[in-house]
Nucleic acid binder design. Structure first.
Length: 522
RNA sequence: GGCGCUGUAGCCAAGUGGCUAAGGCAGCGGAUUGCAAAUCCGCCAUCAUCGGUUCGACUCCGAUCAGCGCCUCCA
């Protein structure tokens, strides 16, 4: 099967064909760096990091760009609140963002362009739009004239008249139409400002993405990603500006990811949402409830760094990818904790591999390209037949609009199949055959090849608290040695007492055919 | 009001015009174990409701109910 992707513009899955064969230009709308990132900010990067991994594996050369918005109203307000400068705040929060990306395993981004470093490109674009009659300067601002763009609204499937009907936009007397949006805003005193043909000012929100994507990728992007909330007005406006400016199709495939939701608060205020009918007080309460249930708007949304105090980053990444990227994700501690539990079985498998083969799973050399995928042949033949089928299902799922949830399901099945092999071939005892061992290694190599496409299981899981302490390790050796003596004399009550008491201390002891292992379970 | 999305087992979740509707977590039964743990095997869903199209629908269409998003410079 070849790759198909769902594009918001056409509202259907399309055959994936790039502008330049074999190459992909991918642009993702990044953060406005005015506050610490929360989990919602990580969704897009994790998803598109995974997309890049898969495209690269499929043989494409991918350029992946995420912009950093470092000038914006919110930044200005926040910097003033904190008594710092816009620049200093932006730098601090950008670093926070980068730290979080790294922790989440997002390491395939090629470039993070900054808005403030692309002012000349934006000015040039704005000038072109004015020259072509798509934009008009007004008292130091410059607006895009929506009425000049016949396709306006195509992406979000709405038209200007309908939108106006429902909004309480006070018709700004200054703009020709309330729907017109700012390309350039004149600055007030003490605000960041740049010289322009229209006076001192700063860029509007949307123009930076148009200018930076044009400069760093080209007039036509293969993939433009972002959260569903950005579809309108941000992406609609980008689209309008860019196509009006360059005359080329702006983006081949629009990929929008679903948003994080918190079930803790969402839905508590029931009833039909009617923004016109409610009393002001009700409307306010309703809005607050909605804001709280919506991570992005919630002032109280935990920062990513706080989240990592409770959950391992790999668990969070796995959790995000277990649901299709276009679906909303219900984010709460219980759901993530459950994901954490379901990962334990994989960690057991990696330990098993180490124990049996004495090889380090995480340094297994794996194929980097689909064309060079792990060869699956040998004994037992039925096992290899099963592996082949599983691999095909995994890749088919990924080919179908990056269905990571389906692919993850295949990983669980692969885990079961491999554990089954180990049991059937008695690999954990001295009776294991060379062919069985070889099959085990091959299967784990394939597992690593596929799981790495999701950016997971690339490194050993973090040790549980206390388990990496050398002193604790030595004590455990001593205890287990004494327990082993008790067991040789069949002193089961002593043996069991030790194990039970350790269990109360969150130390799990496992007696295996030829060894005893322990681990922390916190 | 306008434009959209979602509703699959106790919970999370993939998917399909017809063959057994993935997988995980929890639960139950069994194998294994001195007993456990881990692992394996087995069990656990008339796919929100009603109607229509069809030889046949959970899948397509319509209505209803419920939840949610955007229209307000949130990823």
């Amino acid at each position: 099967m070849s790759l198909r992707v769902y594009s918001t513009l056409s509202r259907q899955k399309e055959e994936f064909q790039t502008v330049v064969p074999g190459q992909v230009g991918m642009y993702l709308c990044g953060p406005t760096v005015y506050k610490p990132a929360h989990i919602g900010h990580m969704v897009g990067p994790v998803i598109f990091d995974t997309v890049k991994r898969y495209l690269t594996y499929s043989g494409y050369k991918v350029k992946f760009v995420i912009n950093i918005t470092d000038v914006d109203d919110k930044l200005i307000v926040k910097a003033a609140e904190k008594g710092t400068t816009v620049n200093a705040l932006a730098r601090e929060m950008t670093q926070d963002y980068f730290d979080n990306l790294k922790t989440m395993g997002v390491d395939t981004v090629d470039l993070f362009p900054y808005a403030t470093e692309h002012i000349p490109e934006m000015l040039s674009m704005i000038q072109t739009l004015i020259d072509k009659g798509y934009a008009y300067p007004l008292e130091g601002d410059v607006y895009f004239d929506v009425s000049k763009d016949e396709d306006y609204g195509a992406l979000s499937h709405r038209n200007v008249a309908d939108m106006m009907a429902g909004t309480r936009v006070e018709a700004s007397d200054r703009k020709r139409s309330p729907a017109d949006f700012a390309l350039w805003k004149r600055s007030k005193p003490n605000e960041p400002a740049w010289d322009s043909p229209w006076g001192q000012g700063r860029p509007g929100w949307h123009i930076e993405c148009s200018a930076m994507s044009l400069k760093h990728i080209g007039a036509t992007l293969d993939i433009h990603g972002g959260g569903l909330d950005l579809m309108f007005p941000h992406h609609e406006n980008e689209l309008a500006q860019s196509e009006s400016c360059t005359g080329h199709k702006f983006t081949r495939y629009w990929l929008h990811n679903g948003l994080m939701q918190s079930s803790k608060t969402a839905g508590k205020i029931g009833g039909q949402h009617d923004r016109h009918g409610d009393s002001p007080a009700d409307a306010l309460a309703e809005k607050e409830a909605q804001e709280a249930g919506k991570l992005a708007g919630s002032k109280g949304a935990a920062s990513v760094k706080d989240l990592f105090l409770k959950h391992a980053p790999e668990t969070v990444r796995f959790f995000l990818l277990a649901t299709h990227y276009r679906s909303p994700i219900d984010f709460n501690d219980e759901n993530i904790a459950e994901t954490g539990k379901s990962l334990e079985g994989f960690y057991r498998l990696f330990e098993l591999f180490q124990r049996i083969t004495t090889r380090d799973y995480f340094t297994l050399a794996v194929p980097q390209l689909r064309s060079g995928t792990t060869e699956l042949s040998g004994d037992p033949a039925v096992f290899f037949t099963e592996l082949t089928a599983l691999r095909n299902r995994f890749l088919d799922a990924m080919d179908d609009d990056f269905n990571t949830g389906g692919a993850i399901g295949v990983l669980f099945e692969m885990r079961k199949a491999i554990n089954g092999l180990v049991a059937a071939e008695k690999l954990e005892t001295a009776k294991g055959s060379p062919a069985g061992m070889a099959a085990f290694v091959t299967a784990m190599t394939l597992f690593r090849e596929l799981s790495s496409l999701l950016g997971i299981f690339n490194a050993p899981p973090p040790k549980k608290t206390g388990a990496d302490d050398q002193f604790a390790g030595e004590l455990m050796s001593l205890i287990l040695e004494l327990r082993a003596e008790a067991r040789t004399t069949k002193n089961w009550s002593m043996s069991d007492k030790i194990r039970d008491r350790l269990k109360a201390l969150k130390v799990i002891v496992e007696d295996r055919p030829e060894s005893v292992t322990w681990r922390r379970d916190v």
